[in-house]
Measured scan of single mutants.
Amino acid sequence: MATKAVCVLKGDGPVQGIINFEQKESNGPVKVWGSIKGLTEGLHGFHVHEFGDNTAGCTSAGPHFNPLSRKHGGPKDEERHVGDLGNVTADKDGVADVSIEDSVISLSGDHCIIGRTLVVHEKADDLGKGGNEESTKTGNAGSRLACGVIGIAQ
Rank of each mutant, 00 (worst) to 15 (best):
E134G: 08
G17P: 01
S69T: 07
K37M: 10
K129Q: 07
F51V: 01
K10T: 14
G42M: 14
E133A: 09
N66T: 07
T117A: 07
N132C: 07
W33D: 12
F51D: 00
P75M: 12
G42H: 06
T3R: 09
K37N: 09
V30Y: 03
H44C: 11
D97H: 06
I19G: 00
D91W: 10
K4V: 11
N132E: 10
S60W: 00
D102G: 11
H121P: 02
K92L: 13
N132T: 11
V120H: 00
I114S: 09
Q23T: 06
A146C: 10
G83V: 00
V8W: 08
T59V: 08
S108A: 13
I19H: 02
S60H: 02
L9W: 13
C112P: 15
T136K: 15
G115W: 03
F65N: 02
F46D: 01
H111T: 13
V120Y: 04
I18C: 07
V119T: 04
P67R: 14
S103Y: 14
I113M: 06
A5D: 03
A141E: 01
G42D: 05
L127V: 13
G62S: 00
G115S: 04
I150C: 08
G62F: 00
G109D: 13
K137D: 01
K123R: 14
G11W: 11
P63Q: 06
H72W: 00
G83A: 03
F46T: 12
K37I: 08
F65W: 09
S108P: 04
A124K: 13
N140G: 12
P75F: 13
S135I: 03
T55K: 03
V82E: 08
E134F: 04
C147F: 03
K137S: 11
V30F: 10
G13D: 08
L127W: 06
G94Y: 06
V95Y: 06
T40I: 11
G131P: 14
G86Y: 02
E134T: 14
D102C: 09
V98G: 07
H121V: 01
N66K: 04
I105N: 03
E122F: 13
S135F: 03
C112T: 11
K76H: 12
T136P: 07
E78A: 09
V120I: 12
K137V: 05
G73I: 01
K4N: 10
T59Y: 11
V149Y: 03
I100D: 11
G86D: 04
S69Q: 15
F51L: 05
A124E: 10
T89M: 15
N27W: 07
V95M: 08
K71D: 13
D97S: 07
E79D: 12
H81E: 03
S99L: 08
G131I: 04
G139K: 03
C147I: 00
A96N: 04
H44K: 09
D77V: 15
K137Y: 07
P67I: 15
A61R: 01
D84L: 02
G142Y: 05
G109P: 14
E79C: 13
G42C: 05
D84W: 01
G115C: 00
D126F: 02
S99N: 12
C7I: 13
V6R: 10
E22P: 01
T138S: 07
H47K: 01
E79A: 10
G148C: 05
D97L: 10
N87D: 06
W33I: 15
A61I: 02
V8D: 14
T3V: 05
Q16R: 14
S35N: 09
C147N: 02
T59W: 04
F21I: 15
D110L: 06
V104E: 15
A90H: 04
K4E: 12
V82N: 15
L107S: 03
F51A: 02
E22K: 12
I150L: 06
G11H: 09
K10S: 14
L107H: 06
V48T: 05
K71F: 10
A141C: 06
K37D: 06
K71S: 09
G131L: 06
S35P: 10
E122A: 12
R116E: 00
G73E: 02
G74W: 09
F46C: 13
N54D: 04
T138W: 05
R116P: 01
V15F: 11
K123V: 09
T136M: 15
V48S: 04
L118D: 02
G139S: 00
